[in-house]
Write a protein that binds this DNA or RNA. Structure first.
Lengths: 330, 330
DNA sequence: CAGCCGTCAGGGAGCGCTCCCTCACCCTTT
DNA sequence: AAAGGGTGAGGGAGCGCTCCCTGACGGCTG
């Protein structure tokens, strides 16, 4: 299965390697008749340029690494975020003719591998999805001098990122619940080593504080299970709770389940609002009110940011707006 | 940010390029003292071999393409399958030191690109996830002479694949419902251009036929919406239906929602069994009984198959067993 | 002690491509 | 008509690496 080379194509077309190269790369300074004869030869031989040889000299790969840094049972790995982000990113990069090298960095060992890989010149840039604040990878990659864009805010302040207006979203949710006449509004938080989780909690707290109400907080970790557990605890701590703002939809779904089991009606007894507006939110019973953050838009924005960086654009963060999608649960 | 080359390392270590190459590639025919001095130089300079140059001469890339072929709103793109497969595959390949190039082939145009890409020698093999029977990609890739393994059975009979025992799984589900004393057992099918869907339907039919019962069939397409719709139709066609076997969990979830809205109790009035045992199955109300097919295991098996093919192994299919996970819905 | 063989370091060709440079040719301009 | 300029093709170096081949050296054998 020997593939033809530039040289073979050149010989067949009766022109020089240079000319074939020019045609293949779409340069305009080629006479039409040469173009045609080369194109014919290319087609006849089924010529496809060798990627390695090309990379070697041009120093660009047209590939981008998408690094998802997360422990095996972590937050990112959960379906909605992972697949939405990966799919959106892939689509977006495909559209500009770039390839996606997907790397799941689940251990320190694989994180080290990522660094080696990136250093090996396999990719033109890195898109990072590393939600944990303590993750050392963002800083490490930033040091390598290759363009890096993060899907979210990280501890490495020199890595350009895209971020949601988390506090704003939480405020949206809480104000909505207040307007619905709720008095005892609780929250189930995400893991507090994540900016997202902290900011959402802060938005919740600030909004309640502004209206002279007190916070009722249960700690979760963005998983369904922790949402169910958090709700159980809230009901125990404060049986009169009449609304819950869950810091993500997965936890809201867990909370719905607990409420159902506890015999509380939603939204009559307890209103529930989630965050993220994942697809499943529309299919719960009752359908879930949620802060729409559009991870897809955020992912798209991150890709655009990365592409801009690769082209030498400015290293500045992007903040995404969000809105409330009101459904049956509130 | 100029990275050091072999030559620089050699100069620093005071040895030849060949020796450095030998050390870097872990060959054993190197004197320990040379090994040490080279290693030191490598470390001091932060040397990482240039991938392109290496590929160019060795003709291997240590990368594998994972091609997910599916229309934008298709079945595969749905969360559970997509993320489970992608994540499992990535983990498995990472473990053997290979990279994943993820390609979503959502249009004919991008399918053509996949072929060019693969022909360009970017990867050592291709793992294919192309559920649609009519998909031309499997056959096209098979023709290229590169190792290809498919996550599922395809129309291209010369592509080695991994498959579930779909008919067996359906039989498991139906027999379970019969044992529970159900008399009018309906099914909601997947899109019938998929082997999976056809085989599950056939298993359902055969089992009912064997026990002298008749089939009650609604057509679905593996989406939640179609499950809800299919259930609606079944209730209309045959109000006495007392059990439903949905050909996947997503549709079962849709069916649960319809049943809830129609005021039927699950499982008292209507028992529901799904297929796939996705994570969400445990979180529905009531929790869903499902045929556990372990997409993760199937994905792992496919990777193993592909790796074996790359090493020159035999091109034969692998069939996975499955089991029934009984929960509250039946 | 001479000759042989095995071991291991170094030299260098060449993988397929791009891109700089040279040069041929033709069209203008004076 | 000669010189100048512009256009576009061809030649060839070199990207960083691997791997074949050569040759030096030391240890054996006869």
């Amino acid at each position: 299965m020997k593939r033809p080379t530039l040289e073979v194509v050149a010989a067949r077309a009766g022109v020089s390697k240079s000319s074939v190269s020019r045609v293949v790369n779409g340069e305009t300074t080629v006479a039409p008749e040469i173009r045609d004869v080369v194109m014919r030869a290319v087609r006849e031989l089924g010529y496809v340029p060798n990627a390695a040889a090309r990379n070697l000299v041009t120093r660009r790969t047209d590939a981008v690494a998408v690094v998802v840094s997360d422990p095996p049972k972590g937050v990112v790995s959960d379906d909605p975020l992972f697949s939405t982000v990966v799919r959106t990113v892939s689509r977006e990069l495909e559209a500009v003719g770039r390839r996606v090298v997907l790397i799941l960095a689940e251990s320190d060992e694989s994180r080290a591998r990522v660094e080696r890989y990136v250093a090996g010149g396999h990719v033109d840039g890195v898109m990072l999805v590393a939600l944990h604040g303590a993750d050392p990878l963002p800083a490490a990659l930033a040091r390598m001098g290759l363009p890096v864009a993060s899907f979210n805010r990280t501890a490495a302040t020199d890595v350009p990122y895209v971020a949601l207006d988390n506090a704003g979203g939480a405020e949206l949710a809480v104000r909505h619940l207040l307007e619905r006449g709720r008095r005892r509004i609780a929250t189930i938080t995400g893991p507090l080593d994540l900016y997202e989780a902290r900011e959402r909690l802060e938005g919740y707290r600030a909004t309640l504080r502004d209206t002279g109400r007190r916070s009722i907080v249960a700690l979760g970790d963005f998983t369904r299970v922790s949402g169910a557990e958090g709700m159980r605890q809230l009901l125990e701590d404060d049986p009169d709770v009449d609304a819950v703002f869950a810091a993500n939809d997965l936890m809201a779904i867990g909370a719905l389940r607990t409420l159902h089991q506890a015999g509380r009606r939603v939204p009559e007894d307890v209103a529930v609002v989630g965050f993220d507006d994942i697809e499943a939110a529309a299919y719960t019973t009752p359908a879930l009110t949620s802060v729409r953050s559009s991870m897809a838009d955020q992912a798209t924005a991150t890709v655009r940011l990365l592409l801009a960086l690769i082209e030498g654009g400015p290293r500045k963060p992007v903040i995404m707006p969000n809105e409330l999608v009101v459904r049956e649960s509130s």
